[in-house]
């Protein structure tokens, strides 16, 4: 299987006062196409930092990180932005929808950045909204939606461009049990249908149960990296 992400001897530290804080240390990980993997660990273990580096929003301090074959350290900010635009979807704990846009417009936005023609955009948006089950909320604004609905819009927005990689940072942290399961089932379904690699960062047991691969992070180091065969997916 082809690796979409390769991380070798990667370390990340932040300057703290005169010294530095090591967030990630000597990480070696590979993610293949179509993975459904999770970075698991308590807060401060470096999950989000790792996701951000993989998502080209941040740079490592040492070591190598290649995303879709590109060494992210030599990418210009423009190239990184293009990469995110084309190949990487993000889902956040707080949904981060554009408040003044309707559901349709929120989902359409990534396609506009990709300069898709209007007809194609509309088709793709309706298609993905059907998948997340929000065709009746097309014209609603985020403020009118429930948390679960918002997160489904966020998923639709991340998936509408059929990215190679989807990075989800604590996607269920603000959702109740039912909604969490709905969301996760939706993501599992998309993962299978679109062959997108999903990487989560989470410490939520509900999420962990769905993962096919569980990478435990502890104090910035990979504590374990295991396949989970008996997952809910």
């Amino acid at each position: 299987m082809q690796n979409v992400i390769e991380i070798r001897n990667m370390t990340k530290h932040y300057p703290v006062g005169t010294g530095k804080f090591t967030a990630l240390e000597d990480i070696n990980l590979q993610f293949g196409k179509g993975e459904f993997a999770g970075l698991v660990g308590p807060s401060g273990s470096g999950k989000t930092t790792l996701l951000n580096i993989v998502g080209t929003l941040d740079n490592q301090s040492e070591g190598e990180v290649a995303v879709l074959g590109n060494d992210i350290r030599i990418l210009s900010s423009r190239q990184a932005a293009d990469m995110r635009s084309e190949h990487i979807g993000f889902i956040f704990q707080t949904y981060n929808l554009l408040p003044h846009y309707t559901v349709f417009e929120n989902v359409e936005f990534p396609l506009i950045l990709l300069k898709y023609p209007a007809k194609k955009r509309s088709d793709l948006v309706m298609e993905v909204l059907e998948m997340v089950g929000l065709t009746d909320k097309v014209k609603s604004k985020p403020a009118k939606l429930s948390g679960g609905q918002c997160q489904r819009v966020a998923i639709a927005r991340a998936m509408v461009k059929k990215p190679a990689i989807l990075l989800a940072d604590e996607p269920t942290a603000n959702l109740d049990v039912d909604n969490s399961h709905n969301i996760l089932q939706l993501m599992v379904k998309m993962n299978k249908e679109m062959n997108t690699s999903f990487i989560f960062s989470t410490h939520d047991e509900k999420v962990i149960r769905y993962l096919r691969r569980k990478i435990n992070l502890l104090d910035g180091k990979v504590a374990s990296d295991t396949e989970q065969l008996n997952n809910d997916a």
């Binding site: 998502g55 929003l57 900010s77 423009r78 932005a81 293009d82 990469m83 995110r84 635009s85 084309e86 993000f90 956040f92 707080t94 981060n96 554009l98 408040p99 936005f109 990534p110 950045l113 990709l114 927005r157």
Partner: peptide, 14 residues
């Protein structure tokens, strides 16, 4: 700021 971060994550440049 969060909105800006989101837009960047969606692929907008600075």
């Amino acid at each position: 700021r969060k909105e800006m971060g989101t837009l960047m994550s969606l692929g907008m440049t600075r």
